[in-house]
């Protein structure tokens, strides 16, 4: 564990807490893509199957359980108590392509053809693209609540910091994983436009609005 990864994990955890805070305070899930949230649940479940086979640390176990359970809880919130505030028509991304595409990539690039290893690779590629339905929704509406942009910023910053962590690990441990690194770079690149508007508008106290 290094400082970059610790801060990244805390940003990831923080992003989820911000999203829950948005839902609780506004009693609304407007502006949030259900598809992206559902993809994250699939990502966490397929990646953390090793909860049952491989103990890393109390920290690691706690975070895995938190990510899976909070993702499930967010879906429940969007489907049950906040159902009326969800706009299906804005959440129009064809996510079948992401589910299928990640499957093809996992079968091609997995390190080993075992169930756990292939599902781990699947989760990496699915996470790489999971934000796309959310970004499409943002593009369609052209604007977002400030709290939603803080959520997205924390989520993007988490993967960006993981890149710094991988560089650090390469330097100190000579450890490198091509799959997570390449996917992580693509995932972070998807946030570029968002980061630009976030830095130039939201952090200056203005509303998030696409040009």
């Amino acid at each position: 564990m290094n400082i970059f990864r610790l801060v990244a994990d805390l940003m990831h955890l923080g992003s989820i807490l911000i999203l829950l805070l948005k839902m609780f305070t506004s009693r609304s899930c407007a502006g949030i893509s259900f598809k992206t949230q559902a993809l994250y649940l699939i990502v966490f479940v397929t990646r953390y199957l090793d909860l049952f086979t491989h103990f890393v640390s109390v920290y690691n176990t706690f975070m895995k359980i938190f990510f899976i359970s909070s993702a499930g809880y967010i879906l429940y919130m969007m489907r049950v108590p906040l159902k009326d505030t969800y706009n299906k028509h804005l959440d129009a991304f064809r996510w079948e392509f992401l589910l299928g595409g990640a499957g093809v990539l996992a079968l091609v690039f997995t390190h080993k053809y075992t169930v756990i290893e292939t599902l781990w690779t699947y989760s990496i590629f699915l996470e790489m693209m999971a934000i796309l339905p959310q970004l499409l929704q943002l593009q369609r509406t052209g604007e977002a609540e400030t709290i939603t942009t803080h959520y997205l910023f924390a989520l993007g910053a988490y993967r960006a910091l993981y890149i710094v962590n991988w560089i650090y690990r390469y330097e100190t441990e000579h450890h490198v994983d091509a799959i997570s690194t390449m996917a992580g770079i693509v995932q972070t690149a998807l946030y570029c436009d968002f980061f630009y508007v976030y830095f130039t508008r939201v952090l200056k106290g203005k509303r998030f609005k696409l040009p």
Binding site: R5, D9, H12, D50, H54, V56, S57, N60, M63, K64, F67, H111, W120, Y162, N165, R169, E173, H175, D177, S180
Partner: peptide, 10 residues
């Protein structure tokens, strides 16, 4: 080892 090192990440 190589693979365990990857899997310690979240």
């Amino acid at each position: 080892e190589e693979e365990d090192a990857v899997k310690d990440e979240l």
